[in-house]
């Protein structure tokens, strides 16, 4: 029932105004000393001139944010720079105004994850002409110093392919699948497309019995329960996030499915700790397209510093691979350990 008005994006719309202003005020207040040092039209000539990296990540409500932030902070400390973070409340116009603030006070480097890529070309160009290093996160722009990329579409595709292969092998390609998707933001749309296209292409005989908006466990639980009311025999539930897949998993267990049922497959994306632990335990939560949080966190600091040291876009840019982790993978334990 929450979902009547519960679209996290809507809630943030409702709040963005106050929160955005608060964040902007806080951001400018907290880093006053460093900004004075960095101001004065001084353009970074080497990584020594970069004392601050501003990381602008709009989806602070996603668990993955906290994970990446943790590693970025550690890396910043190692490199002796300070990490400044924005609070965009998941709202494109708040993001744009926060970036304007960062540009106006001339932080030496900005790493920004555009909610709408085309919309931030102006800010990126402005930053570049002000001598600020601009690193695009999660994609590329025309105007940029470098980029940190990981293909969302690919993460979805890997999960879809694995689930389809599992269905062919264990269900003979016949069964029911439900997708927990996101149609509201660009990265969600890409992940959704990769996941559904790959699955339906490789397992064309599976009946799609649900395609519901859900990015968090709470909503996913409610939606999956409703799907189960009509189709108690759903075999495969794929989630746009691990949070959503976790909610789907709970709904299946609550409906009486054994945690190790051989005819059930749940998979998600992001590599959340709770999901990884379920995979490790050998439940029917079988896979997660995991982001390598440590690699991404490091890149947030390393890429702008590399640009400051004179590396070109092509040299400095990093593409962080997304890996599908399953039971028995060495990477599984490694990522779980990273959370520790």
């Amino acid at each position: 029932m929450n979902a009547v008005v519960k679209k996290s994006v809507d809630r943030r719309t409702f709040l963005a105004w106050t929160g955005g202003i608060g964040a902007a005020v806080l951001a400018s207040a907290c880093s006053a000393p460093s900004s004075t040092k960095a101001s004065g039209d001084k353009v970074a000539k080497s990584s020594k001139d970069v004392d601050t990296v501003a990381w602008d990540y709009p989806f602070t409500f996603l668990p993955v944010y906290a994970g990446v932030a943790k590693f970025a902070k550690e890396r910043a400390k190692e490199k002796g720079v300070s990490l400044e973070q924005t609070n965009d409340n998941g709202k494109p116009d708040v993001q744009a105004s926060n970036l304007d603030t960062l540009i106006a006070k001339k932080v030496p480097a900005i790493v920004s994850f555009p909610m709408v890529f085309e919309a931030l070309e102006t800010q990126a160009a402005k930053a570049l002409s002000a001598g600020i290093i601009w690193v695009t996160y999660g994609g590329t722009l025309e105007n940029q110093s470098a980029s940190i990329t990981f293909s969302f579409e690919e993460g979805g595709r890997k999960l879809g392919e694995d689930a389809a292969a599992w269905a062919q092998e264990n269900l003979g390609g016949k069964g029911k699948v439900a997708f927990l998707v996101d149609d509201t933001i660009q990265l969600g749309i890409e992940r959704t497309k990769g996941m559904i296209d790959a699955f339906t292409a490789a397992a064309p005989d599976m009946e799609v019995v649900g395609r519901e908006q859900a990015i968090d466990p709470d909503t996913a639980l409610t939606k999956t329960k409703a799907i189960l009311a009509k189709h108690p025999d759903v075999n495969v539930v794929l989630g746009i996030t691990d949070g959503a897949a976790f909610g789907g998993y709970k709904a299946l267990v609550e409906s009486g499915r054994s945690e190790t049922d051989a005819k059930t497959y749940v998979g998600g994306q992001d590599g959340d700790l709770g999901s990884l632990e379920l995979i490790k335990k050998g439940t029917f939560y079988r896979a997660s397209a995991a982001l390598q949080l440590r690699d991404i966190g490091n890149a947030v600091i390393d890429v702008p510093l590399a640009v400051a040291d004179g590396k070109s876009d092509a040299e400095a840019s990093t593409d962080v691979p997304i890996t599908l982790v399953k039971q028995g993978d060495a990477l599984l334990d490694e990522i779980i350990a990273q959370y520790g």
């Binding site: 008005v5 809630r11 409500f61 990015i215 466990p217 949070g243 709970k250």
Partner: peptide, 18 residues
């Protein structure tokens, strides 16, 4: 307790409007 998990960022978001 029902979910066996809490995400502080999304739990109950929009709940006030519901």
């Amino acid at each position: 307790s029902v979910l066996g998990a809490v995400q502080s960022g999304t739990a109950g978001s929009g709940f006030e409007l519901a």
